[in-house]
Design a binder for these strands. Sequence first.
DNA 1: CTAGTTGCAAAAAATTTGCAGTTGC
DNA 2: GCAACTGCAAATTTTTTGCAACTAG
Lengths: 147, 147
Amino acid sequence: MNTPAIIDIARICKEHGLRLTAPRKVIMQVLLKSTDHPDAVELHRRVRKIDPGIAIATVYRTVNMLRDKGVLERHTFADGRARYETADHEHHDHLVRVDTGDVIEFRSDEIERLQEEIARAHGFEIVSHRLEIYVKPLKKAAKRSRR
Amino acid sequence: MNTPAIIDIARICKEHGLRLTAPRKVIMQVLLKSTDHPDAVELHRRVRKIDPGIAIATVYRTVNMLRDKGVLERHTFADGRARYETADHEHHDHLVRVDTGDVIEFRSDEIERLQEEIARAHGFEIVSHRLEIYVKPLKKAAKRSRR
DNA sequence: CTAGTTGCAAAAAATTTGCAGTTGC
DNA sequence: GCAACTGCAAATTTTTTGCAACTAG
């Protein structure tokens, strides 16, 4: 299982009427194997390790197209840059360590349910949501990082 | 009570060792009276209605400084641009209408408590968090708006 | 007086776009 | 073959910064 997701990439493209081009294959592969949440520049950095000829414009175009199709999710954490993640996982929220920047995924059905209640109480239904909890380790105090 | 917050602005500056300059007064006043969450460009637009001489650089500098001091919170909703809100209110979360972009504030102690639990279960304590629920009206279906 | 602040313009960073050439289907 | 796609460079948009002039304390 070296390229476990290659089939899925082909399928995703076919489903959405997209051409299966070399740059797209590389970009989507990198995204699928990323467990963190890279921004466009970091994504481009990783992509060009595989194929140095791929332009950052293509990364942006691919990523925007996949977001429009609902294949990708764009997050914007506190640092302000857009960061991406494949949307094929089950939904989850994020714990973000303020000391290291590490992102830990979690899911709470209780919180999900409460959100439904709140939305309904206001006369709405939920389209999507995001919850980020910024944390530091319990025992040791963490340094604050600026910007 | 025409300028209800002017006293607070002076106090905030004094507390943080900042000079009470004219541009700062205007920028902070606009922020305090904003119930929505303007981005830097919109903030500048409002500020220059009061004093057209204020540069957008000053808006950015002021807003960044206030964020560092903890007076302001910077949010980044799904559209990607940084948007600001005074942090002196009690903490709350956001319902965002996807059809109009309107932001509705709410607060759920139950969700707050669950978050505490989750963080602790992972061995962390909460520094801050944000929860945004993107919603549309219950009865009528809403149009999707792109980027 | 003088260190903090500002406006301006230029720089940097992030993202999008026009266009001519390339490629998947 | 031809519309979709790409790379490149230029354009836009968003945010930051250098610097000389200004001003609150």
